[in-house]
């Protein structure tokens, strides 16, 4: 079943005009910000395909920036997102890509915050649903429909077992899980879609596991303010 529940049919509540070009774009921006884990100071956005061709009329640019501000899809500040970003000290650069992409509605976002940097790529696949397909140099595939845990860690034995053990103790059920690594014994990223949000304390516990570099929680179901 492509559509799993009644609120994927009635909903989301959103600022118009387009579920794919506006609401989906907000969610991609928000997933990017939560992957960075702090308020971005600089954002470099590249738009592909139909995003690049029609972003002005659909407010896709405003929507992405609203997402970077961690606004939900129905936040009425969306049309003024650029002004709010400037007030928040966020510098935004946006351009259309010169090269094609597989999916017509794709955005690539490079962010810099006070503490770190991140690169993500996301696609808006219709009805406000998204698919994140890249985080830094890792291939990923998650929809951000569930609370999603990103664990950046070293590729070594036992990390996954410790990770899942911690989630088990926190009574968090894993719905889907994937792992990509740069090389054997190199850097790795594990993406875990959970049925429940992972409590702050458990996130810290995971962050202290041997070989874990950083942990990020992406939760687009929360109203705002997660970072």
């Amino acid at each position: 079943m492509r559509f799993k529940d009644v609120f994927s049919i009635i909903g989301p509540s959103m600022i118009g005009p387009s579920s794919s070009h506006t609401a989906g774009a907000v969610r991609i921006g928000r997933a990017a910000r939560q992957t960075l884990g702090e308020a971005p100071l600089e954002a470099e956005i590249v738009l592909y395909g139909s995003f690049a061709d029609t972003y002005r009329g659909h407010g896709t640019d405003l929507a992405l920036v609203a997402g970077l501000l961690d606004y939900p899809t129905d936040d009425e500040r969306l049309p003024d997102a650029f002004a709010h970003a400037a007030q928040a000290g966020m510098r935004v650069e946006l351009r259309a890509a010169r090269t094609p992409e597989i999916h017509p509605n794709t955005a690539a976002i490079r962010l810099r915050g006070e503490k770190g940097r991140v690169f993500v790529k996301g696609r808006s696949i219709g009805g406000g649903s998204i698919e994140m397909v890249a985080v830094d140099r890792f291939d990923v595939k998650f929809t951000a429909s569930y609370p999603t845990l990103l664990v950046f860690h070293a590729d070594r034995e036992g990390t996954i077992a410790e990770l899942s053990g911690t989630l088990k103790r926190a009574r968090v059920n894993i719905g889907h899980m994937q792992l990509d690594r740069e090389s054997r014994n190199g850097a790795a990223l594990t993406v875990i879609e959970c049925d429940q949000a992972v409590p702050e304390r458990e996130l810290k516990r995971i962050g202290r596991l041997a070989g874990v570099a950083r942990v990020r929680m992406i939760d687009l179901t929360a109203k705002e303010g997660i970072s």
Partner: peptide, 14 residues
């Protein structure tokens, strides 16, 4: 919807 106001997609914004 077209003026960037708040709506509920039912099933889509269109």
């Amino acid at each position: 919807n077209a003026s960037m106001g708040r709506i509920v997609a039912t099933p889509t914004a269109g």
